[in-house]
Design a protein around this nucleic acid. Structure first.
Ligand SMILES: [Mn+2]
Ligand SMILES: [Mn+2]
Ligand SMILES: [Zn+2]
Ligand SMILES: [Zn+2]
Lengths: 153, 153
DNA sequence: AGGCAATTGCGAATCATTAGCAATCGTGAA
DNA sequence: TTCACGATTGCTAATGATTCGCAATTGCCT
């Protein structure tokens, strides 16, 4: 089942001394099956359905660990908090509407080319990366025309 | 001088109703001449040298405005707070070391290709974008080998 | 010059994330 | 299988960054 494959997966990439705990397995499983962008609170909410005693701290600690281990990608949209998704992120970009916050996702091989380029030119081990474009979606662009972009609203 | 060109620049892009204030001119001038990544606090610190009464709120409000106006780019490194730089960001990427936080910057035409691609395929007005790769720099990678990545330290 | 909405400065919220610490638990050795 | 010890967890209490609310100012248009 899910749990087992995550256990093997996690144990295989753990450094000596690191433990495979039920909390980590639960969290990794959730993120893997989430298919998309989830933030810490959403993960916490879902995790509590399975383990009502799990703590939000544990969620953050696991996310930090998974990020360092290269298992998840941290996404920075036009918001104060962050989102996460499992890797490999199938070479896609994100476009974020600065008005409504909508996130459009699309595939492209160019991101792979960028990583190649870096590996060739720099002494830097790339474990992940993010391409995110900001702008305005079609709906918001039309509204913009009459509303004339109030800074706050 | 600086102030004048910023004034013209700012006024030219302001929407009706928006005002060109001395605070905004000061802040935009600072960011323009900063050449690189500055965060809100750094901008605030520098701004106070010129105008000791300027408020941190004003800094944040100006940054939000400049971002919406497309004058500055907001950068999301591996940190809790954000950094800013003027646009156009001359088509460069950032590589952030997850261990020491160092940011390496490099040029490449691929980012332009991505924007072209999006303009061709989607109904989305791109006003900016960010490509940032995460990983480990050469120094941190060597240390990693003995220290074996403690999560916290 | 006069009027008014936009903007500023404060100070007090919020929100996301992290720290501190005692109680547990996973793991590798015996 | 049992033990021992360090890694991890769950609280709760900090931090840190950013935003809000509001009265006092001040651009900007007539
Ligand atoms: Mn961010
Ligand atoms: Mn830069
Ligand atoms: Zn939108
Ligand atoms: Zn480094």
């Amino acid at each position: 089942m899910e749990q087992d494959s995550s256990a093997a997966y996690l144990r295989a990439r753990s450094l000596p001394g690191q433990r495979v705990t039920p909390q980590r397995l639960l969290l990794l499983g959730l993120i893997r099956r989430a298919q998309g962008h989830v933030d810490a609170d959403e993960i916490y909410r879902r995790a509590r359905e399975r383990n009502p005693h799990i703590s939000l701290s544990t969620v953050y600690r696991a996310l930090r660990l998974f990020k360092k281990m290269g298992l998840v990608e941290e996404l920075h949209f036009n918001e104060e908090h962050h989102h996460y998704e499992v890797k490999p992120p199938s070479q896609h970009y994100h476009m974020v509407c600065m008005e409504c916050g909508k996130v459009i996702e699309f595939l492209s091989p160019l991101i792979g080319r960028i990583v190649e380029e870096v590996n060739r030119e720099y002494d830097f081990t790339v474990t992940g990366g993010e391409v995110s474009l900001v702008g305005y979606c079609q709906e918001c662009r039309s509204q913009e025309t009459r509303t004339e972009a109030k800074l706050d609203e």
